[in-house]
């Protein structure tokens, strides 16, 4: 057999390389275009997967919540339960409910006017151990009476419903994230990746989302409008959370917000948050639970040394 000279060898290698490389590239390009075509049709049509009927607003109701900081132990069960209940994918991090950690001295009254900083051990979010000298504060969508997010949304994808819940219409969201920039409570989450929830974990009462849309706490609208309470309230082992109708003076929430200990976050912005907090009155005996760890990989947080 005739031996190959160098030029022929290079030609052969180039041909073989191209042959091996092209199909992979072609399939990658095909995958991209397939994803775009799918996104185009899904984006124009609406949501994916299951069709979900959202219950109508409850007449005469104005939903609100009270969180007793004296009872919150920062176990993050509310956050975890919320995630499961609302088909929140793992790619959403932090979840709808962030549990902040601040320093606490027994007997200290903690209110909005006395914001506490905790940079000693890095980010307050990333704790792994409950501590009695810390105070825990869950933050989420405040379902404001005059929400800035609904005013700025260019498509009315987010709106205030008559029963006080700030809702999301995933069929209208274009993913501009203006609501996120305008929200003073850091309550909104964007699907940076394609959201995937394992089929066995899907809650059929909650719609699935597309990538590129914003989502948030809906006060478990699929439950609360059917007369049940929110999942986070159910999940709290210390009963730190109370949910109810603010228009009913006899409801537990109405009685709690009348307390001297009640305050709301960032009231100076006049957004009218519908979540009240009760300050820490004094050290109370309470049951401590092991916290559910969250992934330290939170987008946008500077890694502390």
């Amino acid at each position: 057999m005739r031996s190959l000279d160098r030029r022929q060898l290079i030609k052969l290698a180039a041909l073989a390389g191209t042959g091996a490389f092209l199909p992979r590239q072609a399939s990658a390009v095909g995958e991209i275009f397939e994803a775009i075509a799918k996104k185009m049709s899904e984006g124009i049509k609406g949501t994916i997967g299951q069709e979900v009927e959202t219950p109508l607003p409850v007449k005469g109701a104005r939903f609100g919540m009270v969180i007793d900081l004296g009872l919150c132990i920062g176990c993050r069960r509310c956050s975890y339960a919320c995630k499961l209940e609302n088909n929140v994918p793992d790619t959403i991090n932090p979840p709808y409910i962030m549990v902040l950690e601040t320093k606490y001295k027994p007997g200290q009254i903690i209110a909005e006017e006395q914001p506490m900083k905790n940079h000693v051990n890095g980010n307050g979010l990333l704790y792994t151990k409950l501590r009695r000298d810390r105070m825990y504060m869950p933050v989420q969508c405040n379902h404001c009476a005059d929400p800035p997010c609904t005013k700025v949304c260019p498509t009315k994808a987010t709106y205030k419903s008559p029963d006080g819940i700030v809702m999301m219409d995933y069929n209208k969201c274009i993913g501009c994230r203006y609501c996120m920039a305008a929200c003073p409570y850091n309550a909104r989450r964007f699907n940076w990746w394609k959201p995937e929830v394992s089929p066995e974990k899907i809650n059929p009462l909650v719609p699935l989302r597309l990538d590129g849309v914003v989502e948030k706490c809906t006060f478990c609208v699929h439950r609360t409008r059917r007369g049940r309470t929110t999942r986070c309230v159910e999940a709290c082992p210390n009963k730190a959370r109370t949910f109810g109708n603010l228009n009913d003076p006899e409801s537990a929430v109405s009685k709690l917000i009348a307390s001297e200990r009640s305050f709301r976050l960032k009231v100076g912005l006049n957004t009218g948050p519908q979540i009240w907090y009760l300050t820490h009155p004094k050290e109370k005996p309470m049951i401590w639970y092991k916290p559910i760890p969250i992934s330290p990989d939170i987008r946008g947080l500077r890694k502390s040394g």
């Binding site: 260019p154 498509t155 501009c176 994230r177 590129g212």
Partner: peptide
């Protein structure tokens, strides 16, 4: 830049005819 930024540019094309919110400065 807007189209590259938004999560769903195909839907964004419906602005201002099919989707609109007159109080939004973005709109």
């Amino acid at each position: 830049c807007v189209m590259m930024d938004v999560g769903n540019p195909f839907r964004a094309m419906k602005i201002p005819f099919l989707l609109r919110n007159e109080t939004s400065m973005f709109f």
